[in-house]
């Protein structure tokens, strides 16, 4: 407060922007910018996964189906050569391969790929004098 010509007047009534007011206003504006910037940053960050390059390997699907056909046609489930053939197919295709029937099973990557995304095919096989179902699944790179 200040006395002028013997009258009591306030700074507000003179509409004088004092340092304190100006500081407050600018501080408010800056914090608003900061909030907006953080908000925009969050939007940008949340949209980043949309631009991530996703590598699809359509040939893995064909390689896995080829492996299932090849195991079935080469009698690998019946003649005891399943593990060797699974290993060969895995080396040639670059995939981890697992094959199993009611009587036998083999895997090229033992104990791996529990959470991996797999391709799986069921093929008919002739085993122990009966028609059975065998399953071949493949995943990832070796």
């Amino acid at each position: 407060m200040k006395f002028k010509s013997g009258r009591l007047i306030s700074l507000e009534s003179l509409s004088v922007p004092c340092a304190r007011d100006a500081k407050l206003k600018s501080g408010y504006l800056l914090s608003l910018e900061a909030v907006t910037a953080v908000f925009l940053l969050l939007i940008a960050a949340s949209s980043l996964p949309l631009f991530r390059f996703q590598e699809d390997r359509p040939q893995d699907f064909f390689l896995c189906s080829d492996a299932a056909i090849v195991f079935s046609k080469s009698h690998a489930f019946a003649d005891g050569s399943l593990q060797e053939k699974v290993q060969t197919a895995s080396e040639l295709s670059g995939l981890c391969i697992e094959a199993y029937s009611p009587l036998t099973s083999a895997s090229s990557c033992e104990g791996e790929g529990a959470d991996a995304e797999r391709y799986a095919f069921t093929v008919p096989i002739w085993q122990s004098g009966a028609l059975q179902e065998a399953r071949v699944s493949c995943w990832g790179d070796r």
Binding site: P17, C18, A19, D21, S26, E33
Partner: peptide, 29 residues
């Protein structure tokens, strides 16, 4: 007295804001 000095500071703050806003707009674009 108070008016002159404080007003110039007040304007100064605003021009900083405006410059920042311009930088942000250019950067965002």
């Amino acid at each position: 007295m108070c008016r002159e000095t404080q007003q110039s500071r007040f304007r100064g703050y605003f021009s900083v804001d405006a410059a920042l806003a311009l930088v942000i707009v250019v950067f965002a674009y």
